[in-house]
Write a protein that binds this DNA or RNA. Structure first.
Lengths: 124, 124
DNA sequence: CTTACATATTCGTTAACGCGAATATGTACT
DNA sequence: AGTACATATTCGCGTTAACGAATATGTAAG
């Protein structure tokens, strides 16, 4: 349980989780949306992977990350309360807006040209 | 929000919160139940106080700590989910059992003689 | 096989954390 | 004032975490 909170005790990781909560997303979108250096993103994703919160899937050159709901029922309830609460934060909302925009744009910005679009769940 | 999780990312603090969730308790009970050195307990309580999760009340020589529910509705929901989940952990259950015992014992152990008994909420 | 690109990992440094030991503060009692 | 007790704080240390910079891995394409 502390391990869960260690994983959540970092703003970058919370922003990543907030995005991953929307569906399966590949790394290049994270770096574009968070505007953080790629090694930083990669390290935090590795951290989340080791803590069991997310899982990765390789697709050619791209790595897609998605949420892996915790095994225990209680931990799962905690996590979903966290994800819900995150959406109250202005920066998190901005991140989500950027993700929506990137997802639906007719042409992706040059930094993302060719990248597979994230598969977002339908928004409630 | 990260600050909340930094506070939760430590086993000692989780054990303290688990106990404080039962009602207002004074420091000597924490040291007796967790069997940890007094400065350690005191430091972690200070940490929780600074993070706004608990508040302290002086009563003569004794300091009583109690839960301070987070301001935001979402954060409050997260915390209560956490507290509920904590009770699944064997060590946390053991701590609660020791607390109950200390609270209802006819005579307190010598280490706690004279200490004000915690005011536990009724158990559901 | 070389290049290009997406992603991951390593290295070195700096900052924060948790702890034990020692000490300080605050309160009650005499 | 002086002692006893409950609690808080400080100090020094080893461990861990995050970061930028550099480099390595893996895959696709020519």
């Amino acid at each position: 349980m502390e391990q869960l909170f260690e994983a959540l005790a970092d703003r970058t990781r919370l922003r990543l989780l907030n995005l991953i909560g929307q569906g399966e997303i590949c790394v290049c979108f994270f770096t574009a949306i968070l505007r953080a250096p790629q090694p930083t993103i990669s390290r935090h994703l590795a951290y989340l992977r080791k803590s069991g919160l997310v899982e990765a899937r390789r697709d050619g050159k791209w790595m897609h990350y998605s949420l892996r709901p915790p095994a225990g029922e209680g931990a799962a309830r905690v996590l979903s309360a966290v994800l819900k609460e995150l959406r109250e934060d202005p920066e998190m909302q901005k991140d989500l807006a950027l993700l929506q925009k990137a997802c639906c744009a007719a042409r992706l910005p040059r930094a993302l040209a060719g990248a597979p679009r994230p598969a977002l769940k339908e928004t409630r």
